[in-house]
Write a protein that binds this DNA or RNA. Sequence first.
DNA 1: CAGTCCGGGCAACCTGGTTGACTATCGCGT
DNA 2: ACGCGATAGTCAACCAGGTTGCCCGGACTG
Lengths: 158, 158
Amino acid sequence: MTLPDPSRPGTAALLLGMGFRALTDRFHELLRAEGFEPLRPAHGFIFRLLEEHGELTATQLGAHLELTRQAATRLTVELEQWGYLARRPHPRDGRASVLALTPRGRGYVAHADALWARIEREWAAVVGEDAVEGAKAAVAAWVAHAAGEGTPSLRPVW
Amino acid sequence: MTLPDPSRPGTAALLLGMGFRALTDRFHELLRAEGFEPLRPAHGFIFRLLEEHGELTATQLGAHLELTRQAATRLTVELEQWGYLARRPHPRDGRASVLALTPRGRGYVAHADALWARIEREWAAVVGEDAVEGAKAAVAAWVAHAAGEGTPSLRPVW
DNA sequence: CAGTCCGGGCAACCTGGTTGACTATCGCGT
DNA sequence: ACGCGATAGTCAACCAGGTTGCCCGGACTG
């Protein structure tokens, strides 16, 4: 698909979609160049949620990711097998398990954060730091506006 | 997922993804409110490509959308059944068929364009017109930079 | 100590893509 | 002319990543 002229009205969604894709492509490129396991965005968001909330159950993860428990469980099983997550029985609820990042998982997250920051600097090198900050703020304001009091969705509709 | 603080470094991809999703959600909301058929982004891009290039074969569409011919064909068959596309034999190549928008298809595109422009004005009403223009330009510049001489991709990796 | 609710696991299914095989046509080189 | 590799299209099998439906067993409430 050709890049649309950004001054044409109505091209915003297309551009944001392409921008998202270009950023994540760059991320995976860097990651692979360093020999890291090629995790998908969904895995990354699990990391981010666990980092933010400490420990969560599979059901809670599913709710945040807007996935069913079954789908969320499958993702966590993979991550557990790869050693990024540890599962232990919930201390007070015999039904549930609690998931948390392992040291390896925390290492991955730290590295990923550094890469994202680096990519953002690459973007700033192209258009200037102010432009990047402005773009991020403008997008964030729209997302907040559009989400109302709900939480914004992320998984793209395709 | 919670909206990240846009001033934190490394949040750009997350924000652009959420922005893309919020814009397309709004688009589908408006479309459905008017009783229009709920087409997916992939359908819209076929329209856009046909509008831009006039007439294309299924294989050419597939190439532009980064899909196999088979997947592209399936999409066009749906759109043909719904009356948005017409297929006729290629004038000079007995193997190929040529696809073009029907009047109904052109009507849909015109309406969709108007909606996208309207949504962009809604965004501008939140953050100001200059901020939207700036954001679009900054994203476009990054996409152009990242794509190099290739054409940028659109379908999000998830 | 019921009865109901809820977390989790299992199985079947759906959607939207891929790969592979096959046919028919094109168009080039000899 | 013609033979042959390349290409458009279709069909079928498969695959990935999600969903729904069902069941089990522990938790909470009366």
